[in-house]
């Protein structure tokens, strides 16, 4: 090797090391707070550990925790079903409503004020939201039933009827998150160049055709972003359901199996039943579900935006 080449390699090595040195704080952070905990969780998922003894004293059980959850634990499977309903329902219904509102707000006066009003629930603590909605949902004196009575519909046991309590909570989640979705959709809508609509109008397209063939395709990156981030958040839903249905300050009258979702199941399994191995196995199964759904969403919406017109 010539002296020049050796010197160039030394320079390259130095530059690489310098690069890693600058990256090291972030790498250490991810290692300590992400990689190691994930590795530990995976390790624990193959063990029978109750957290009362050191992890090293726990028993290795192989895939037993996974097979138990998938084949013998009815509540886990119910939690998976409820989580899928909750996540897809809150995200996609929320997105449809938010898109409608965002389009309306582009055409009304005082849009900024309305966006502010819609965004307020996003920054309201979920405990406060649960208390307010717990009151609204009270069967005898709640506002929700008062409205139903006004329009001559039968009142409901919003949080006690096993057939509707999950949907009642989903309604709160949609209400609580719609403001942020509206803002993102508004940004997406404003990013669509007017030229496409002008061209469509010249071609004789009506509002529905414009929406279907311009707005939706051009919003695909926005829809993709909202779907993936929304779903990831919704899979981990916990606070509202915990407070309104399972042991919180409001109500607490619905059967657990009609509202239990995976995050709540994992919490109870780990910290109430002291079965951390089973809870970690459940967490990895949840991870696979999130990954699978995210992959499907990415596959369906992978094309969109301006580039699809090129």
């Amino acid at each position: 090797m010539s002296p020049g080449a050796a010197s160039a390699r030394r320079r390259l090595l130095k530059r690489t090391l310098t690069g890693y040195l600058f990256l090291s704080p972030a790498l250490v952070f991810y290692l300590v707070f992400l990689v190691i905990p994930i590795g530990m969780s995976l390790y624990i998922s193959f063990r029978d550990w109750n957290m009362l003894v050191p992890l090293t004293s726990s028993r290795f059980v192989g895939l037993k925790n996974y097979t138990y959850l998938l084949t013998r634990d009815e509540l886990f499977l119910i939690a998976v079903k409820n989580t899928i309903i909750y996540a897809t329902g809150t995200v996609f219904v929320g997105m449809v409503l938010a898109l409608g509102i965002a389009i309306l707000l582009l055409r009304v006066r005082g849009a900024t004020f309305w966006r502010f009003v819609m965004f307020a629930p996003v920054v309201t603590p979920s405990v406060a939201v649960a208390r307010i909605w717990g009151g609204l949902y009270r069967p005898a004196e709640g506002l929700a039933n008062a409205i139903l009575r006004m329009v001559h519909l039968p009142p409901q046991q919003w949080l006690a009827d096993p057939n509707i309590c999950l949907y009642s909570i989903m309604l709160i989640a949609i209400w609580g998150g719609i403001g942020a979705t509206v803002i993102v959709f508004t940004a997406g809508l404003k990013g669509i160049p007017d030229v496409y609509y002008d061209a469509a109008k010249l071609d004789g397209a009506g509002p529905w055709a414009e929406f279907k063939h311009i707005t939706i395709p051009m919003l695909k990156p926005t829809i993709l972003f909202l779907s993936v981030t929304g779903l990831i958040g919704a899979w981990q839903a916990f606070d509202l359901i915990f407070m309104l249905a399972v042991g919180g300050t409001e109500a607490g009258t619905s059967p657990v199996r009609s509202v239990i979702v995976l995050a709540l199941y994992l919490y109870q399994m780990a910290f109430k039943n002291l079965r951390m191995g089973r809870a970690c196995a459940g967490a990895f199964l949840l991870f696979l579900i999130v990954l699978g759904f995210s992959f499907i969403v990415l596959k369906v919406l992978r094309k969109g935006g301006v580039e699809s017109y090129e």
Binding site: P139, E141, P155, Q157, A160, G248, G252, T253, S254
Partner: peptide, 14 residues
């Protein structure tokens, strides 16, 4: 509408 406004007896499910 059949909604109980006063409970003769109350449990607590949650």
């Amino acid at each position: 509408s059949g909604i109980i406004t006063q409970y003769g007896f109350a449990f607590l499910a949650g």
